[in-house]
Design a protein around this nucleic acid. Structure first.
Lengths: 191, 191
DNA sequence: AGAGTAAGTCATCGAACGATGACTTGGAGG
DNA sequence: CCTCCAAGTCATCGTTCGATGACTTACTCT
């Protein structure tokens, strides 16, 4: 492998950008920071991505989770798993959505968060809820997930910082059942 | 009243700073923006507050809500009211906590949010919950409130943006009861 | 080995930032 | 009316930001 490898350098920049953007948000991260982390000159960012914004978009482009696979009554449990307990090392240890909220004063980022939340969580949950305000209840449950992610990793409240999947399961079960109006399980059967 | 009124100008700067910081976050707000909104020179900010950071701290210093007044079984309802439906015009229409989350990459701000959340919400709720993981359940309910505030005003999901206190009440009742393990009411009895 | 191309670096631009100190202006007391 | 102090402004400093274009270095192909 050559010392000068365009693809490898590009990938390295993407990786360090992900971490920086997740940890500090868009504005607080400078292209010089990212480049320094990657061990290259900042100019390459513009050469490879065009602009800081374009790098941000590419770095925070999410891989859609396959939340719909598996038993329906464990959907909420899978979502909790995805938001809270998945290994988001590449995003500074937090779910990309939580990370993106740090840059939420850009209308563009807000739009992306909204689309992501609605498409991934609200829509899937609204299919489970019944009654006229199904979407509201789906959003309320999504709000819980987002809130848990934030209180856990951004605010770092004591109990939530320490709790594991097993400790969360019974409460997930109670709340999901209460909100959706149908029996839900608090933990995923796999793993 | 004199045209040159130190106290009035100081108050005006505090007000415009509140709005700017709430809407755009700490970094995205410049002292020149704040001063321009107040119609004075930016230098006065340093003369009156010492630094941008000191102005931020003073502008986001919150008046502690009297959530503990009133029936215990309506505590959660009062919290929802405080977080979601109160008139936070001075903070850009959002609860100051949600607004402060925009500046959460500063460790200092995170600490303040944590203290605020724990002291105001978690502590009050933990008194209502029973059992060994009372604090965890209190944090989970606080997470819900924070999540609702965020989905409503930052992310602006469709259903939550439109819903009123009455529409939220039954769901608040169900979730609070399920999480705390004791009967809770979804709406406040007053006005 | 030498030319050509692509990867990476250097020098620098203009704008915006927080902050400082010297300056000007307005209003009240003599 | 004139002086004096505080309120408010102006000019500017040193940094840092995103971004650009010219330059240098390393690898490859013949």
């Amino acid at each position: 492998m050559p010392k000068r490898d365009r693809e490898a350098t590009r990938a390295r920049l993407l990786e360090t950008a992900r971490l920086r953007f997740a940890r500090e948000g868009y504005d607080a991260t400078s292209v010089r920071d990212i480049a320094a982390d990657a061990g290259v000159d900042a100019t390459l960012i513009f050469r490879y991505f065009g602009s800081k914004k374009a790098l941000f978009d590419e770095a925070t482009a999410e891989i859609p989770a396959d939340l719909l696979d598996g038993p329906q009554d464990e959907l909420v449990a899978r979502m909790v798993e995805a938001v809270v307990f998945q290994d988001w090392t590449r995003y500074g240890g937090e779910h990309p959505l939580v990370a993106m909220l740090r840059s939420s004063h850009h209308e563009d980022t807000r739009r992306r968060i909204r689309e992501e939340v609605c498409a991934t969580y609200v829509e899937a949950l609204a299919g489970l809820a019944e009654g006229e305000d199904a979407e509201l209840r789906a959003e309320l449950l999504s709000a819980w997930l987002v809130g848990i992610g934030i209180l856990r990793s951004v605010v770092a409240t004591p109990a939530l910082s320490e709790v594991g999947a097993a400790g969360l399961a019974p409460h997930v079960e109670r709340v999901a059942t209460a909100l959706l109006g149908r029996p839900m399980r608090g933990a995923s059967s796999e793993g």
